[in-house]
């Protein structure tokens, strides 16, 4: 059920070192957050689009993701144009939409979508175990990385367990409705999944111990920097610098 939709493929982004990708992503999103003019943010958005094309992921899947993510942004569109004071553009039932409000909503839309595209190209092109390994190499605490990797490992197992229980309930004519019976049934299922997870968690530790687990985190994969990493670093840094140029020009004037 949980698929890493974008991580298979062969492009400059897929081949890059995950450590470099994480650092670049953080810098890039910092640039998106710090820029506050439409032109700068648009430059970054266009670069995000170019990166998506370079990473050769399915464009259709990317747009499906963007659609879901934009619900929060859409929610803001219902309020911001009307609650920001400024020059009135149009009126709906005494509600005045201001130019400033529309500009701000537009700015947020571009920023949010640019950031999502960047997350897809930089980290969703990496498998989760590799991200965990890279985080560890970047100095994240070992326990946290272990927690991250094991949580990822058991998502599917727990999901299967819940689905099995839910299907059993459906077969026995459980129809979810707005009533106490439904809430009670669902909470008992959730509680049962938690209890089984608890027991499984203890068994897992014992099994790990039997196989020589000593609390250390090790990976067979070696991380190496290549020319490819330099290439995407230059690309990213170039786009970040370029996005600050319009502001600099305004400042000079």
């Amino acid at each position: 059920m949980l698929q890493e939709t974008f991580c298979s493929g062969n492009s400059i982004f897929h081949r890059a070192d995950p450590r470099i990708k994480i650092i670049l992503l953080v810098l890039y999103i910092f640039a998106i957050v710090l820029n506050n003019s439409i032109i700068s943010v648009l430059i970054l958005f266009v670069f995000s689009l170019i990166f998506v094309c370079l990473s050769k992921v399915s464009i259709w899947m990317v747009f499906k993701r963007l659609f879901v993510v934009n619900t929060f942004v859409l929610f803001l569109w219902f309020f911001l144009p009307f609650s920001t004071p400024g020059e009135t553009v149009f009126t709906i039932y005494k509600l005045k939409a201001s130019m400033e409000g529309i500009t701000e909503a537009l700015l947020i839309t571009i920023k949010a979508n640019g950031a999502i595209l960047a997350i897809i190209t930089y980290v969703s092109t990496t498998t989760i175990p590799m991200i965990g390994h890279a985080l560890y190499k970047l100095g994240v605490s070992q326990n946290l990385v272990l927690l991250f990797l094991l949580t990822y490992r058991y998502l599917d197992v727990i999901f299967d367990e819940f689905s099995r229980m839910y299907n059993a309930a459906i077969i026995r004519n459980f129809i979810p409705k707005t009533n106490i019976h439904t809430y009670k049934t669902i909470s008992y299922m959730v509680a049962m999944v938690l209890i089984r997870a608890y027991e499984r968690g203890k068994r897992i530790y014992e099994a790990m111990l039997l196989r020589g687990f000593n609390g250390k985190f090790s990976s067979l994969q070696q991380l190496k920097l290549t020319k490819n990493d330099l290439l995407i670093s230059y690309l990213t840094l170039f786009s970040i610098v370029l996005s600050f140029v319009p502001q600099y020009i305004c400042y000079l004037r």
Binding site: L147, T151, Y152, A197, G201, I204, M208
Partner: peptide, 8 residues
């Protein structure tokens, strides 16, 4: 491991 399975 216990925390991880509960988190998932």
């Amino acid at each position: 491991p216990l925390m991880a399975v509960l988190t998932s």
